[in-house]
Amino acid sequence: MTETLPPPQLEHVCDLAVTIAPPLEVGQTASGLRRVIPITGGVVTGPMLNGKVLAGGADFQLILGGGTQAHLDARYVIELDDGTRVFVQNTALRFASLENSQRILRGEPVNPADIYFRCQPRLEAAGEKWAWLSESQFIGSGRRAPDGVYLSFYRVA
């Protein structure tokens, strides 16, 4: 006999404002359009994590569906206020109309309500205090803007 279990609850962990450099265009490959977006910094604020995004990461993108789908794989490091460094690997799906996708690719603003942008961050840190980061599942929402990427992360409780 099967049983429907109650849905998990979400706990707001933090919000990120990630700054980026202009994209490095790899070009149209057999897999799709490849781009790499350098991550130059940012700020992390929230009820459970606070700190900064360190420069040196990147978002590796594969654009499909004639430009309407972006499969994202961002990897970067957050330095928390106590000095602890957290490795982030954030995979995401961004879907938009062809018109809005072209605006995003050109670095123009779009209405966030018209874009589906969801992510699954994985977080890792050293030390007992932050072990819960490796022992939890996270999901999030994102918004791409001309000046960067804005994310909200939630722990699945």
Rank of each mutant, 00 (worst) to 15 (best):
D114V: 09
F60G: 00
P23W: 15
G148Y: 06
D147W: 00
R75C: 07
N50M: 09
G56W: 02
Q9I: 00
G65C: 07
Q89P: 03
N111W: 00
H12R: 09
T45V: 14
P8G: 05
G66F: 11
V13E: 01
P109R: 02
S141E: 12
E3D: 10
Q137N: 08
D82C: 11
G107H: 10
E99Y: 09
S134A: 15
S152T: 14
S134Q: 10
D15F: 00
S97N: 08
L98M: 06
Q89D: 04
Y116H: 14
Q102C: 04
W130F: 11
Q9V: 02
M1T: 03
I39S: 02
M1S: 14
L98D: 05
D114P: 04
A126W: 09
P121D: 10
E108H: 07
L49H: 08
F60C: 03
V26H: 11
A30G: 09
V43H: 13
L16F: 13
S97Q: 11
D81L: 04
G83N: 06
V149F: 05
V44A: 13
D81F: 05
L49T: 09
N50F: 10
V18I: 15
N50P: 01
G83Q: 05
A113F: 13
I37M: 15
C14V: 08
P47D: 11
G65L: 12
T4H: 00
D147P: 05
G107N: 09
T29V: 08
G148K: 02
A125L: 07
L10W: 02
G142N: 10
G46Y: 10
C14Q: 03
L24R: 14
V110E: 08
R155E: 01
L123F: 14
L98H: 09
N100T: 14
G46R: 05
L72Q: 11
A17G: 09
D114I: 06
G66L: 04
L133M: 12
L33P: 00
S101F: 06
E79I: 00
V44H: 12
V18Q: 10
F95A: 15
C14N: 12
L105N: 07
R35S: 01
G41P: 00
I20C: 01
K129N: 06
H12T: 15
A17F: 11
Y76M: 05
I139Q: 01
